[in-house]
Structure formats: structure tokens, C-alpha cells
Design a protein around this nucleic acid. Structure first.
Lengths: 246, 246
DNA sequence: CCAAGTTAAATCGTATACGATACCTTCCTA
DNA sequence: TAGGAAGGTATCGTATACGATTTAACTTGG
């Protein structure tokens, strides 16, 4: 990987725009997105340490801006910040995992309810195109496939026009990616594409009740695939506790 | 005006813990909570400028930590950060206001569904105590009353034990406070207390369907009170646009 | 050989410095 | 007098410096 050379000291222009709008991107935003993508694509697994200087060196920025990015990621729940101990990629507990999916069920039901029968032709086209992309990336179960599966749900949320809703769904999706990395099977976006197609069909049909049921089933399937393992390598203490009593 | 004297340079110990747990509080956290409360209690109205040095001086910290606090507030939607223009208290559009209440309806229905019949005696007691406090603060419609009305909903969400859910509800509640400041009546937490009592009763009865209906009605009432004015002093351009065509 | 103590290295928390940008005032010109 | 140019001021964005704290490495006594 081409190491980014240190920028000339003369520099400025940055800000933390938490908005999703396409304003001028700040440097902190670049770092934020970079780390975020790395986590979502599971290049950075749970509990991975995130030292500020190392990241800053990689991105060619100082710790100051890295810190801003990490603060945002922490607010989003993707990163854990402990006092004087630095940042690590979050490691959601099994309980948190269930919490995430509970809320996803509720919010994504709202999404499809808002969308049923109101889908614009342009929106439907975007969904179709996305599912087609998913289909194409189906073979290789690399990070591509993981990301696309999640982005379908985010796209759905964005089509409602409710900015806050799409932000929340986006957060929950990225957390789901972490959960999958922890408790899920190696690769598990098999039949999801077919279910996505069904949801689109029901949406254009305007079948509100049907699409809510479909989404519920889809999420149940996702949960079923995601929460197979009780807790893979949770913590050494947890593993040893089973043996300590003998 | 009592200008806070600069602290001695020897200082340390701080971190941005976005978690709600009661760990050692960082200085950024103190600033974060301070500004947050000021916004919620409507001491800082929408679009109020939030200059970093001024805030830092007030709290006896440097711009660095203020910036961390503002970044978090922006991620939460309470503050707007514009490139090179600094931070201002957010000014939710009417559309955003509807978005907020849409999601509140969905999530708070989830809250009461999770709670119906499962309320511990301790939880019920906390709710009762809170409503009693609301009742007491009913006369004076100062910031106290505004804050308490919101905190009832937050307390409800916290009792579910779902940390993420209570974080989201908390955010939505604080945004609602901003919305109320913009589009609502001067004071409007009248019958809310009675409705809160009804909800508690239905929860202890374990009447899931009933409590969902009650919560829906309650939120409708809140919305009705909150979205009276179309847009008080929105923007001079908006006001003038009605006259410009003649 | 291991536990505990001690020093060294890594990393964090925060203040501060400085260039850059936005904003406001003033003054000049048509 | 309106419009705009020029300068100054306020405030931001970012790098850097330094004390503090954690973590690792290395002793040293048992």
C-alpha cells in the first residue's frame, strides 16, 4: 500500500460536519469515513486497538483530527473510548446485539411502511440496480458482499426522505456488521438477495402489511444467521471460567 | 460578568466516553453535558452561535476540549457545525420536526411494548416518583417543567434495559425540545402529566395494546402542542417572499 | 523459577501557537 | 448615496509541545 507522504505543513480547511449532505468534506471526515469503512468491511475486527498517532500517520494528519474522527465514531457506537486507554473497535455484547436487532425491526418496519406504494420510479430503479449489484457480488463473499447487503437497507431508509431515520438505520447496520463479525458465520449473505427482491416487489405493489411481514421475516433470517455462535473468543477469562471450577 | 480565571497550566485526565455508564467523567463530558442541558432547557435557543473560546473560558478549559464536546453534540443533532463558520444550536426544519416525531412514535411504541407487564416494582416506583416531581413543578412553566416532561420518556426507555434504544429516545427527546422552542406554544406541558400517569397504569396492568394506543395518543397530543406555529421567525427571506411577489 | 518492584517506552489528555477563513468596519469612488 | 475595495478583528482548523498515565520490559529478592 502506498504510504501517504506527510503533507506540507501549510494546511487548513476542515470541520466535522455530521450532516449527511454533500458539503465540502473536512479532513476529519475523510479519516472518519476511512476507519468506518474498514470496520464495516471487517478489515478491523472488534477490540482492535486504534492508536491515534498510527492512524494519523496513515492518513497524513495530526492526532487532533484523528481524535475528532474517533469521537464521532464513538458517538455512533462503532468505537469504544476508554479514559486514558485510547480507542478500540467496539465489541458488542450478545445483549447489545439483540438490542440492535430489536430496534432494527421497529425502525425498518417504519421504513417499509413509509415506502409502500409511494416508491418513485427513480427510487425503484435505484433499488433494482442495487440488488443487481448484490447479485453480481454474490460469488465472492469478501467485504464487498457484506457492505452491499447492509447498504440495501440504508438505501431503503434514505428513500423515505427522513434524514434522521436513515442515520439511525445506518448506525444500526454498521453495528450489525460488527455483530456479524463476532457471532456470525464466516459468510452469510446467501439468500438475502432473493429476500431483498421480494421486499422491492411488495413495495411497488403497495402491499403495506405484506412488506412489513416480509421485512420481519428477512430480519429474523438475518438474526438467525448472525447469532449462531454464542460467543466465539469472547474473553480469555470467560473461556477459562468453565475450567476453573474443576 | 464574573470572568472565570484561567486555570493553572498543570492539568490532565480527560476522555470522551460516549457511553452512558458512570465511569470517571472527562472534562469534555462536563462541557458536553453543560451545553446539552442549556439547549434542552431552552436557555440556548436555535441558531445561537457557540464560539469555542467563549465556551472554553466559561468552563475553564481550552478550545480543544470544547471542540470535542461540540463534535459530540453535532453527532447527536443538537448542534450544527459548518465549515469554518463554527457551531450553532441546531434549527430543525418543520420537515425534520415531523421526522423526529415519526421515529418517536415508532420507538416509544417499542418501549412500552417491551415494558408492558414486565415493569419491576422498583421501576414502577421510579416512574411514580418522577410523575410526582412533574406534578410539583407543574405550576412554574420554567425550564424545570420542560426538562421533566422529556425525562419521563427517557426514563421509560432506560427501564427497558436497551441501552441503544434509550440513547436514541434521549436524542429524539432533546431534539423535540428544540422543536418546541421553535414551533410550539410558550408553555405546553399541561395535561401531559395526567397522560403519563395513564401510561404507567396501563404498563403495570400489562395491557400492551392499550399502552401502545395511549402512547400514540400522548405523542399526538405532544405534536399538536408542539407544531402549532408554522414557522415563527424562520428566516427573513421566507417572510419577505410572501411580499415580494406583489 | 516466580512474584513484586522499578525503570523505560508508548500513548493519551490538554494547552497553546499560528496560519487561514469569515466577518465587520471604514473609506473611497461613481 | 449606493456599491464596493481594503483593512482589521474575530474565530476557526490544525499541528505541535508537554505533562500525565498506562503498559511493557527488566530487574531483583524470595
Amino acid at each position: 500500500m502506498p504510504r501517504t507522504k506527510r503533507k506540507a505543513p501549510a494546511a487548513s480547511q476542515a470541520a466535522n460536519d455530521a450532516n449527511g449532505s454533500a458539503g465540502p468534506v473536512s479532513r476529519a471526515d475523510t479519516v472518519y469515513r476511512g476507519i468506518r469503512r474498514a470496520i464495516i468491511e471487517q478489515a478491523l475486527g472488534p477490540s482492535t486497538k486504534l492508536p491515534e498517532d498510527l492512524i494519523g500517520e496513515r492518513f497524513g494528519v495530526s492526532r487532533t483530527v484523528v481524535r475528532a474522527a474517533l469521537t464521532r465514531l464513538a458517538a455512533e457506537g462503532l468505537v469504544e473510548l476508554r479514559l486514558n486507554k485510547g480507542a478500540t473497535v467496539a465489541r458488542p455484547s450478545l445483549e447489545e446485539a439483540h438490542d440492535v436487532f430489536d430496534i432494527r425491526r421497529s425502525l425498518e418496519r417504519l421504513v417499509v411502511a413509509r415506502l409502500a406504494g409511494r416508491l418513485t420510479p427513480g427510487g425503484a430503479a435505484r433499488l433494482d440496480a442495487h440488488v443487481a449489484a448484490e447479485e453480481k457480488a454474490k460469488g465472492k463473499d469478501g467485504p464487498e458482499s457484506i457492505r452491499l447487503a447492509g447498504e440495501f437497507h440504508v438505501l431503503l431508509a434514505e428513500l423515505t426522505g427522513n434524514v434522521i431515520l436513515s442515520r439511525y438505520v445506518g448506525e444500526l447496520i454498521s453495528r450489525s456488521s460488527l455483530i456479524l463479525a463476532l457471532y456470525g458465520r464466516p459468510h452469510s449473505s446467501d439468500c438475502a438477495v432473493a429476500e431483498h427482491r421480494e421486499i422491492i416487489d411488495a413495495l411497488v405493489r403497495g402491499d403495506t402489511a405484506g412488506v412489513e411481514r416480509l421485512m420481519d421475516h428477512h430480519l429474523d433470517a438475518v438474526i438467525g444467521r448472525a447469532l449462531i455462535a454464542p460467543a466465539p473468543d469472547r474473553d480469555i477469562r470467560d473461556i477459562l471460567s468453565a475450567y476453573a471450577a474443576e
